[in-house]
Amino acid sequence: MSVSSLNALPQSLGNYWRQLAYRNRAAEVCLYVLLASGLPLWSGFDLPWFAARVLLFLHCFSGLILFPVYVVPFWFSHRRLLRNSNKPLLKVTGQLLDLLLLLSTVSGFFLLLVGNRGEFIGWVNHYTHLITALPLGLLLMRHAARWSVLRPLYGLPYRLLCRLFLNR
C-alpha cells in the first residue's frame, strides 16, 4: 500500500464521521421507532397485553441494537455542531435535545439492564424515561424539520382536510 493511500484512510474515516452528523435519516427513523414503540407503553394508554408485549420487545430491541448502531455515532458526530452552528433556533433546540437524549438514554439503559423492580432509583428512571419521551420527539421533529424523513407528511393534515371538506 502506498503512503498516500495510508494517509487517505484517516481522511476518509474523518469524512465519514463528519457526514454522519448531517441528514442522518437512519438515526432519525430509529428515534421515531423508539418513540412510537415506547410511548404507547405508558399505562395511560392501557393497551391490551398482546400488543403491549410486542411493542415492549420492539422498543427494547431498538434500544439495545439499533440505538447504539445508528443514533449514538450520529449523536456524537452531530454534537460538534453545537459549537459551530450559527443558527440560534437549531442551537437552542439542539442543546435541549442533547440533554433530553442523555437523560432518556441513561434512564433507558438503566431500565433495560437493571429494571424498575420497585426500588426508588428504578422509579426515578422510569419517570425520567417517560417524561423525556414526548418533548424529545416533538423537539426532534422541529429541529430536523428541514431535512426530516417526515417532510413528505408535512401539510398532510391540511391536505386531508381540504380533500374532505372542500373537495380539492
Partner: peptide
C-alpha cells in the same frame, strides 16, 4: 430484561 423494565 423486559420483565424488569416493565414489571407491572
Amino acid at each position: 430484561r423486559m420483565i424488569n423494565a416493565k414489571p407491572a
